[in-house]
């Protein structure tokens, strides 16, 4: 007979943590419905809705035709009717065919109605690089964050994936929830941070960044799958190199500038690591937010690394050249601490 202790890590993967969160939300609120391609019978191409249709039926967990404009727009009508739709856009790259429904309707109706109509909608989608080239590898959180009215979440760990999904579903505001394809099938035990996924329901609040590694020389701000890379580099440098404070943003909107600024005020050095496109995006927003709050004199060094405004290439050698991987993070830390 084995006894499960609370300290033991449940070795589920990130997709299972998300499915478990959705199951708990659907059980506590019958107004939660899930719509999307392959979300029902198959349980999602990454398994993050697995088991939901069997438990809650085909009406509440609905396989849709390949018709994103229609089923994303359905969320608007459902929300007006008092439902809390979770719409899965299989890959974030597909948002191009239904961005209208997301940014002109879901994101703006609360405002356009003068606060009279809420849009408690979750746009659940998967981003990030896994060798799928230009049309299946983007992050795009900066794109959503640029458009008013959308909260934007990009979790980095199994623990946060479950807790942030609970927060997204219970939010009365629309939330774009961007999973990382490279993390979804990764087992909890392989994570250096956030490996523990309690069975019961819990909420990780939107807008609260997480200091995953304390440090005193450099503030490294990042999110999603890059957190593991940043953490690995920071741990490697512990005791031998610069002391790196790694901040996992968890959410892009709201952006937790309080936590970032508190750290930068101590370190004086800011490095942003972002798997999204660099230009006009999250990294620039973080840096300008810090400069506006703390003043330019607060920064001895500042740098950002990300995908330098190039589509994601197919060949592994090219993909590695555009991504902010561990080598690039090491070099950037060297640069800001030189």
């Amino acid at each position: 007979m084995t006894v499960e202790t609370s300290a033991a890590v449940r070795n589920i993967n990130v997709s299972q943590a998300i499915a478990e969160s959705l199951r708990l939300e659907m059980a506590r609120d019958e107004k939660v419905v899930v719509l999307g391609e392959d979300v029902g019978l198959q349980g999602g191409v990454f398994g993050s809705t697995r088991g939901l249709q069997r438990e809650f039926g085909a009406m509440r967990v609905r396989d849709t035709p390949i018709a994103e404009m229609a089923f994303t727009g359905m969320a608007v009508g459902l929300a007006i009717e008092g439902y809390r739709p979770v719409v899965e856009i299989m890959f974030v790259d597909f948002i191009g065919v239904c961005l209208e429904q997301v940014f002109n309707a879901i994101g703006k109706i609360p405002y356009m109605s003068g606060g009279r109509v809420e849009m408690p909608v979750v746009i659940k989608t998967a981003g990030g690089c896994i060798g799928s080239a230009a049309q299946h590898s983007q992050c795009l959180w900066g794109t959503f964050a640029h458009l008013p009215g959308l909260k934007v979440v990009a979790p980095s760990s199994p623990h946060d994936s479950k807790g942030l999904m609970a927060a997204a579903v219970e939010s009365d505001d629309p939330v774009v929830f961007i999973e990382h394809k490279g993390l979804l099938l990764q087992k909890a035990a392989t994570f250096e941070h956030g490996a523990d996924v309690p069975k019961e329901r819990y909420v990780v609040p939107l807008g609260q960044a997480n200091v995953v590694h304390a440090g005193s020389d450099v503030t490294l701000v990042t999110l999603s799958a890059s957190v593991s890379d940043a953490l690995a580099v920071a741990q490697e440098l512990d005791g031998t190199g610069p002391s790196v404070e790694v901040i996992d943003l968890r959410t892009v909107v709201p952006l937790d500038l309080d936590t970032i600024c508190a750290s930068v005020a101590r370190t004086g050095r800011l490095l942003v690591v972002d798997e999204d496109y660099v230009g006009f995006g999250l990294s620039g927003e973080v840096i300008s937010g810090v400069v506006e709050r703390l003043g330019p004199q607060a920064l001895r060094a500042v740098k950002r690394i990300g995908v330098a405004d190039t589509p994601i290439p197919a060949a592994k050698s090219l993909e590695e050249a555009v991504l902010p991987g561990r080598d690039a993070i090491r070099r950037a830390i060297d640069e800001v601490t030189r």
């Binding site: 419905v33 009406m59 509440r60 404009m69 229609a70 089923f71 994303t72 727009g73 359905m74 969320a75 608007v76 009508g77 459902l78 929300a79 007006i80 009717e81 008092g82 439902y83 739709p85 209208e100 429904q101 002109n104 309707a105 109706i109 356009m112 109605s113 009279r116 109509v117």
Partner: peptide, 29 residues
């Protein structure tokens, strides 16, 4: 927008039907 009367509009041509489809689905649900 009039939530009680389930009346809404869109300024984007063609964007009304997906919203109506959501209401129709809610009616069946």
């Amino acid at each position: 927008f009039d939530k009680r009367l389930r009346f809404s509009t869109t300024g984007i041509v063609g964007a009304s039907l997906p919203v109506a489809l959501g209401h129709a689905y809610a009616a069946v649900l």
